[in-house]
Design a protein around this nucleic acid. Structure first.
Lengths: 121, 121
DNA sequence: GTATCATATGAATATAAGTTCATATGAATG
DNA sequence: CATTCATATGAACTTATATTCATATGATAC
């Protein structure tokens, strides 16, 4: 790293533009939520309709406990919310931002695949 | 789960709308990339300018090795690319989609904070 | 109150993932 | 061609995280 003094100016510049550590952690934590297939499948399910825990578990072929744990994570992050109806608890998307974010990821993959196909021609 | 038969219709409906397993994994893998503060900080750095490995390492106060490992992950996922100039290797964003996706996450956090502040009034 | 059903939760376990350390590669330079 | 500098890489270690299992909670119905 003997050249380190050479990029001092650039480093100062970039350092200034980096978001605060707290913001970076929050951002990473947000994306981490989408970085798991179980949570992703739960969210996609809730795109269609609110659902109770056991319905989600059955749909995804997983135990009620596993689903409950993940629902808790998603709820604590305010991506989903729930309402009670007797013994049953229905979960639903808290807002539409989730759709937008996942949609962007989706678009990226589609575009990437398009590019790869073109390369292979 | 004795009630399982009751949501059969809903389950069939939602099952139809769920993306294929492969797409779900790719999506989760994509978001996983953004779910780590080191990678997030690398990407934010590259938003400003292409950079060599040692500059990034110095900027983030991390070892060259740690940065190299993460750059490899990001490159394998086609989020970034690199070019060689003598001994130095410069990394840069592969496309602007990354900016868009992270931007969406950013917006979500901003909005969430706005909502929380309003609640506390 | 007791039984039952839906869900939540804590602890244990298993697996994934990030960093470090030592070392390898690969280009430039004398 | 030996040395130096920038980067890459494999293995070991460490920490985070997802699932399971057993059990708790909380609501309903009898």
């Amino acid at each position: 790293m003997s050249e380190s003094h050479n990029h001092a100016a650039l480093l100062d510049l970039v350092r200034h533009e980096l978001p605060k550590e707290e913001m970076l952690c929050d951002l990473a934590d947000l994306f981490k939520l989408f970085g798991d297939t179980t949570r992703m499948r739960i969210l996609f399910s809730l795109f269609e309709s609110e659902m109770c825990v056991c319905a989600i578990a059955e749909l995804l072929g997983m135990t009620q406990s596993a689903i409950s744990h993940q629902l808790k994570v998603l709820k604590q992050s305010n991506l989903i919310d729930c309402r009670r109806e007797g013994k049953t608890i229905y979960y639903f998307l808290a807002d539409n931002h989730v759709r937008t974010i996942i949609g962007q990821g989706f678009d990226h993959l589609i575009e990437e695949r398009k590019n790869k196909n073109e390369e292979n021609i």
